Computed example of a mutant assay.
Amino acid sequence: MKRILGLTSIRSDYDLMSVVYRALHEDPDVELRLLVSGAHLSPQFGRTIDLIMADGLPLLGDVETLINGDTQSSRLKTAANLLSGSIDLIRAYAPDMMIFAGDREDVLVAATIGAFLNIPTVHFFGGDHTTDGHVDNPVRHATSKLVTAHFVSIDEHRHRLMHLGEPEHRISVIGSVALDKFVSEPLLNKAAVLQEMKGKPHAATNPLAVLIFHPLDQERAVAPDYARNAVDALIARGYHVMVGAPNSDPGNSELFNTLLKLGQREQVTFYGNTSRACFVNLMRHAALMIGNSSAGILEAASVRLPVINIGERQRSRTCGKNVIFCGGDKKEIEAALDTVGTAEFQASLSALVNPYGDGRSALKAVALLKSLDLASTIKKTEDPLHAS
């Protein structure tokens, strides 16, 4: 039996990997454990460890790491807490491999632990790239140089890793496992979704716009204004705005308070965090997604949902034709709303195909995790100077 340890520290990375984790847990040839840390344990960010427990997935343990100081140094100290707090748990469990997803500091910590403890590691969603200047981008690439193998979403990401000096035999293109939930999650009607998310009465009779806005260091001073501008523009167009909580990156405090205050309006529901089933069905019933979440870039195309990405976050990532980018000025947001509301734009959605896959990637990932002999390739002897 192969022992696999998944590491998760925030709602978003767990949501990306949840179908993979479930499939591994149900496989009789695999012993899955999760090591849970970071924002998962924070009441402010929804204590999303409860969602993991509700999914019935077994934990190796939980490590309290989050220092919510809303600064870059507090984020770095959180990473240090994860490193020091999880080493002994991982060493004692001695998994056959560790798996993790994304571009936060947690994956860099996990990859470092694997490299030093000689535990094979598999990184999901490597090889992606943005030009927004966020530290997560080089963190993603640095992680790629430490891990044993890469499960990437599209061929572009494979080529980027090869340009970083990673040999092709370490890279598997499987599509995005984040899309599998759109296939596996049952359909809920709009009324059931709004009841679960405590939607206000206005939501039942108006089109839904999903607003998710995360902090970006260089937009820290203007992000609250961007959020207010978006909500004002959406309300003026007759939308009910369903607002999610920002992540725990520096700059979250003022943004969180702004979104919470906007949630006091009758045309706005601040739901904060919700279950995977509710979020998938919220996207199914929404008329629009707006903000700067990767869900708009990676996932919205699977339900042919128009997306307006505000500001610099997510710039230059591959995305479907359902996504348009704009600045945070109210007039720019209104112009973007005009564009997505045209008959031509709406008609183009009927032929939309998600460039990241068809929602059937998790089983590919599980088959590879079971079959690959990662122990024999854990030593990275390749010289980037002579990479093919």
Rank of each mutant, 00 (worst) to 15 (best):
L255N: 09
K330R: 15
V323K: 08
V241C: 00
D338Y: 02
R315Y: 01
G341Q: 04
A295Q: 11
V303G: 15
V307D: 07
S248L: 06
R317C: 10
R304F: 01
C278L: 10
A343Q: 11
T269W: 00
A245K: 11
M283G: 08
P306D: 09
N273P: 01
P250M: 05
G238Y: 08
A335S: 12
K261R: 14
I235Q: 10
E312R: 14
I308S: 04
T274G: 13
D232V: 09
E254W: 00
E312L: 13
G320R: 04
K330L: 08
E312G: 06
L259P: 04
G263M: 11
I235G: 05
K331T: 02
S302M: 15
V323T: 13
C326K: 03
V241H: 00
F325K: 11
T342H: 09
V280G: 09
I235R: 06
F345P: 06
K261H: 11
A230H: 06
E344A: 14
E266L: 05
D249T: 00
T339G: 01
R284V: 00
S294D: 09
L305N: 12
R276T: 12
I308G: 03
R317E: 07
Y271N: 05
T274E: 01
G320T: 10
L259H: 07
E254L: 10
E344K: 08
H240Q: 12
N257H: 15
F279T: 12
Y271F: 15
A236G: 01
E332V: 01
E344W: 00
M289N: 00
S302R: 10
M289S: 10
F279I: 12
S302F: 04
D338Q: 11
N247I: 14
L260E: 04
K261S: 12
S316Q: 05
K331C: 01
N322Q: 08
A300Y: 07
A286K: 02
F256D: 08
G263I: 13
S293H: 09
E254P: 00
P246C: 08
G263R: 10
L255Y: 10
T318F: 09
G238I: 11
A336C: 05
N322I: 08
G327D: 04
A236L: 01
D338F: 03
L259C: 07
N257W: 09
F279M: 15
L288Q: 06
N322E: 05
A277P: 01
A343P: 04
K261T: 15
N292H: 06
N229Y: 01
A230K: 06
C326N: 03
C278N: 14
G272T: 07
G291P: 14
E332Y: 01
S302H: 11
Y239L: 03
G328T: 14
Q267F: 04
L337Y: 05
A301Q: 09
G296T: 08
G327E: 02
T318V: 12
N309I: 12
A245T: 05
A300C: 14
P250H: 08
M283I: 13
K330D: 03
G341H: 02
R276H: 10
G320Y: 06
A286L: 05
